[in-house]
Simulated scan of single mutants.
Amino acid sequence: MAITQHEVDEIGGKIATLMEAERIAAFARDQARADYQDQVNAALSEPIINLTAEIAGKVNEVERLLQLAVTLNTEAKAAGVTLSSRFPGASGLIMTQGLFHLRAMLNRFPTTAGL
Results as ranks from 00 to 15, higher is better:
residue 1 M to W: 13
residue 2 A to C: 04
residue 4 T to C: 12
residue 5 Q to S: 12
residue 6 H to W: 08
residue 9 D to E: 15
residue 9 D to M: 14
residue 10 E to R: 15
residue 14 K to W: 08
residue 16 A to C: 10
residue 17 T to F: 12
residue 17 T to Y: 14
residue 20 E to G: 03
residue 21 A to Y: 05
residue 22 E to H: 10
residue 22 E to Q: 01
residue 26 A to V: 03
residue 27 F to G: 01
residue 27 F to H: 15
residue 30 D to C: 07
residue 30 D to R: 06
residue 32 A to E: 04
residue 34 A to M: 14
residue 34 A to S: 10
residue 34 A to Y: 14
residue 35 D to K: 06
residue 37 Q to C: 03
residue 39 Q to W: 00
residue 41 N to T: 08
residue 42 A to S: 05
residue 45 S to D: 11
residue 46 E to R: 02
residue 48 I to S: 13
residue 49 I to P: 01
residue 52 T to Y: 04
residue 54 E to L: 13
residue 54 E to Q: 07
residue 54 E to H: 03
residue 56 A to T: 10
residue 56 A to I: 11
residue 58 K to Q: 14
residue 61 E to D: 15
residue 61 E to N: 14
residue 66 L to W: 09
residue 66 L to S: 00
residue 67 Q to F: 11
residue 68 L to N: 10
residue 69 A to Y: 07
residue 70 V to T: 08
residue 71 T to C: 01
residue 71 T to N: 08
residue 73 N to A: 15
residue 77 K to H: 13
residue 78 A to E: 10
residue 82 T to A: 13
residue 83 L to W: 02
residue 85 S to K: 02
residue 86 R to Q: 07
residue 87 F to L: 15
residue 91 S to T: 02
residue 91 S to E: 03
residue 93 L to W: 12
residue 97 Q to Y: 01
residue 99 L to K: 08
residue 100 F to A: 05
residue 100 F to D: 02
residue 102 L to H: 06
residue 105 M to T: 09
residue 106 L to H: 01
residue 106 L to M: 05
residue 113 A to E: 12
residue 114 G to I: 06
residue 115 L to P: 08
